[in-house]
Design a binder for these strands. Structure first.
Lengths: 115, 115
DNA sequence: CCGTATCCATGGGGATACTG
DNA sequence: CAGTATCCCCATGGATACGG
């Protein structure tokens, strides 16, 4: 449904594998780099860094580095990021609403071709 | 924004490169296989076939084969496909609305890092 | 702790040729 | 015309190790 919208959306870091999940992790407040890796357990630091950088650049998240040793960096949602998060919820609602019909179509299709 | 929703969406053929564009090509009426290739000029028959099959399976498009030689097959939107198409329009609306803010964020970011 | 640097695996999708 | 059949590229992103 959505990756195609990259063309419409153009440059927005939208439609990739991690953006939505990262936004969700930040829903309830700031998170540190390592705290983000926990719920996104499969993510490697490289990929997380890339994702966060791109999202920061697009104004979806804010990066705040607290000086000192050991370093401490927290990520938080911007207003734009929060609006996107909420909009993604409506997208998921659409899916939840329509999923039964999709699954039924698929069941019917599979039965037709298997015969 | 959206590819991640594949996880939410799960099995739905949504978030891939072609679904949205194909739906748009069918907006104004039925189209034949070769007619679809014109507006989707970059698409190869293999990819178009794969996309259409998956969309048919998910109940987004309907495939109607008219017997005879040469063969004639037309694709059309199902009700579900049309609802998805309309919903994609609202997604694009969100983007259009928010794109200026994103671009501005990006401009500011690039200036910051280039300094 | 918060990343970078390297290398590598995978699969989506493109190019091309062919068939019923 | 409406696809199949092959081959192949390459970007995304995973694994691992290391650095400030």
């Amino acid at each position: 449904m959505f990756r195609d919208c990259k063309d419409v959306v153009g440059p927005v870091r939208v439609g990739d594998k991690w953006t939505c999940r990262i936004l969700r992790c930040l829903r309830d407040g700031d998170r540190r780099f390592s705290e983000l890796r926990v719920p996104l357990s499969a993510i490697t630091p490289k990929v997380l860094t890339e994702s966060l950088r791109a999202m920061e650049r697009d104004g979806l998240v804010r990066r705040t580095a607290h000086p000192g040793v050991p370093p401490k960096v927290v990520y938080s949602l911007t207003d734009l990021g929060r609006r996107l998060l909420e909009f993604m919820d409506t997208i998921c609602d659409w899916t939840v609403t329509n999923l039964p019909e999709i699954l039924e179509a698929r069941r019917a299709y599979d039965e037709r071709v298997s015969v």
